[in-house]
Structures are given as C-alpha cells and as structure tokens.
Design a protein around this nucleic acid. Sequence first.
DNA 1: AATAAAATTTAGGTATGACTAAATTTTAGA
DNA 2: TCTAAAATTTAGTCATACCTAAATTTTATT
Lengths: 235, 235
Amino acid sequence: MAAVNPRTWKQPMKQKLTISIQDYMKTIYELTENGESASTNALAQKLKVSAPSVTGMIKKLASSKPALVEYQKHQGVTLTKEGRKAALEVIRHHRLLEAWLVQTLGYSWDEVHEEAERLEHVISEDFERRIATAMGHPLRDPHGELIPTEDLKMPVDESTPLSSLRPGQNGIVTCVKAADMELLRHLESLGLVPSAEIEVKEYSPFDHNLTVKVEKKTSVLGFNITTKIFVEITK
Amino acid sequence: MAAVNPRTWKQPMKQKLTISIQDYMKTIYELTENGESASTNALAQKLKVSAPSVTGMIKKLASSKPALVEYQKHQGVTLTKEGRKAALEVIRHHRLLEAWLVQTLGYSWDEVHEEAERLEHVISEDFERRIATAMGHPLRDPHGELIPTEDLKMPVDESTPLSSLRPGQNGIVTCVKAADMELLRHLESLGLVPSAEIEVKEYSPFDHNLTVKVEKKTSVLGFNITTKIFVEITK
DNA sequence: AATAAAATTTAGGTATGACTAAATTTTAGA
DNA sequence: TCTAAAATTTAGTCATACCTAAATTTTATT
C-alpha cells in the first residue's frame, strides 16, 4: 500500500533531481560499446537532461581522481580504465539482479528491468557476491545479456548475430535486446525468448536487417527486428 | 569488486548529501512511538544533520499536501495520519527485507540491517508484495520486531517486557533491540536471539532494568540489558 | 521571580546539479 | 570553398538541502 499517493501528493520539494554518477557511467558505456565516443547530445537524450548539464558533469568526471572519462571539447566522451570498471560494476549489478529477481521472486522476463534499475545503485558488494553465488555465477541475465565478471571484465560474446543466418538455418536465441516493454511482451508471446529455437524463413539483406518468421505467428513481421536479436547457431 | 575505491577516489562532487523524506519520516516515527513529540534536536542527532536543517525540512514536511507532520514552533514534531503511513511503509520495507535477506541469502541476524537500510528506499510495492507472499506474510523480522501490515498498521505487540519476569520464570525471546552490531553479535553468541528460551535468575528493579543470566555464560552481565529485550512468557 | 542554561529558530551563506539563452565550433550541402 | 544547419559549449540563473553564527524562546535553578 502506498503511503502517500505520488499523483496527488504535493511534495514539499523535489528530491533526487540529480542523475547519479553510476547512471552517467552506464550510459556512456552503452553509447561507446561500438568503440566510438559518446556525444554530449546523445548522453543528454538518454539521461533526459539538457546538453549543458551533461557538459558540466562530464568535465567533473574527467577531473576526478582517478578520472572516469576522457574528454576533449567537441570530441565526445570515452571511458578510462577506471571508468569502464565503474560502468561494468553497475551493469553487473543490474544483470545479476534481473536474473535473481526472475529466479527467486517469479518476476517475468519483461518486468524486471525497472526494479533492477533502482536496486543496482544501492546493493553492497556483499549482496552482489551472495546472489552471484546463489545462482552459480550465471553468464547471462534473463534477456540473455552477458553479465560482467566479478573482476569487472565483459565476457566475449560467442553468439552469432541473427543477420548471419540464412533461410533454412536454425538457431537458439541467446539474447533479446529491446527497450520497449510492449515489444518484449510481444516477442515473449511469440516464443522469441532466450533459449528458444528458431528457424529463419526469409532473409532481406537490406541494412543488415533480418526478417524472421516464427512458425505460427507471422505478425512479428510488423516489427522491425534488427540485428539486436542474436542467436547461437545450433550447427 | 569495487569499481573505484571510495577511500582514494576523489569524487568530482558530493552526491547524495541529502537525507530522504523517508528517513525523516522513519526517524520521527521512532522518536514519537512513546506518544511524545520529537524535538528538532533529537532528530538532528539521529539524522546526523544540524538542528537548523531539521527545522527547515520539518516546515516543508508540514506544508506539503497532504501534510506529513504536525509542527508548532518550539513544540516538537508529530506525525499526521498520512505521515504515519509513510513511516510505516518504510519500516515495513525494512523489516520485510531483513527477514527476506536472512531467509534467502543466508545473511546473519546481525548483518542485515545496513543492507536493508539502503534497499528499503528503492523497492517497489510489487517487490514488497512478492517477498511478503514468498515468506507467507511474516509477523516479525529476524530481530523479532513487528512488521507493519500491508495496509500500514502496526500490529499490537502481545509479548511481555522482560522487566516483568521474576527470578525463576522462563520465557521465549521474541525481540532483541540493539543498535550496536558488536552487542548484537555478543547476544547471538550467548543464544539471546528471537525464539530462544531463557530463564531469569536475578532481578534488579533499579530503573526497570533486569539482569538476565543465561545458563552458561554469565559474561552477559557486563551488558546493561534493559527492557529493550522482550520475552513472551511461556505460561 | 529572576536569571542562567539549554533548546530552538532565524539570518545569511555555500555547494551542487539542474535549467535557458546566447555564443561558438563543427559538419554538411550547394 | 563558402555558407547554412546542427551540435556543442559558455554564461548566467535557479532550486535544493545543507552549514555556521547569532538571536530568540523555553526550561530549569536558585
């Protein structure tokens, strides 16, 4: 039961209007995964904050000791070694939490994200260790995303992008990336979840996009499934 | 593994220097449990914040809609109905979390407090419901403290204060209140934990304090165990 | 009842991360 | 290459919760 209704409660002041350092690090990590640097604008959009605010914060993160980011005017941001570790720690928290919430509290695959998003910032290293141990140090979270190791390294992904499959080939879904909850639920209803077997029926090489027809429901065609879905080739 | 060592990392700025509203509410609740009003000074001490800061925040909490506290200059603070609910919600979170962490992650009785202290602010109502259900809606946390009900009411405590026991009487410990971790561990090592059977050997009515000799180790005498320890009389 | 001590509030100021608007730099198109 | 558009940073503010020091009110003591 909610103590005060957030819709009707007129708060005395705005608490927590600030984006945490961890959120900055995580977002920079995500934007620079491909090797490129993250622009302040891109960061601003992701973090839902104005571009000037990002510039200011980035400067601070670049001048901390040790520095967490590398930054040059108009050149975007990259992570330092320490910065990458900081990012991977939050990501490890997030993914371990997702896995754990699904396993022990019956959260569904598509519900856990928000909860983990809040918990990831406050759990202790002890907590992290306990849930990792309790689950036998899983490699992937419920979405199939790789979980950074305890020493904060991102494991190499040995799965193959869906786009490399050709009609007639089979695969096992290892990872489903989608920010949209609606889409997640739809994919689940189609059986497009990690560990599901799929068969590629049609290939349209345009822009590396792949159209997958899942056996029974072709309505998935309505979604533009890009290489964000990865499969592991059975053989 | 810690991403950045908090001892050596020179943060770019100080994040989270603010006490949450929830912490204010929880602390006010604890200070007013006996029916008295909480002084700004007492609050300041508990929250480790200056007295003027408390005055300022209290004023804001009193002018929010709905108001969470009742406040008159120099007269201390009390909770409104809504305020009490807000406090009980955090307390419910805290105690459910403690119970759950002990049950599912093997935390010991004395370790859970800190972890719960951080998690209590970020879990959703959904999470609250899930762990409550998973544990079968427990009445007490691992320390024996009563858990507020789902509709945010504090159950009446039907156990009897230890001070009402006389030499020769037996009891079952229901609750052990102690802020100090060292003491908690010591009490545990003596077997003074919830559901333990105890026998009162000696009674010193001074100031309602009771000296309990636990069978084997009399070193507990060194601790001034007050009525903060409650027992349930076996018969 | 007067005064000293304690508790509390007021006044004034700091640090932080956010914002908008304007200035600048980079990028892209003619 | 020049110029217009886009991206980015600078400048200047604001809101918040905190702080210290001083003023005030309450309380406790003689």
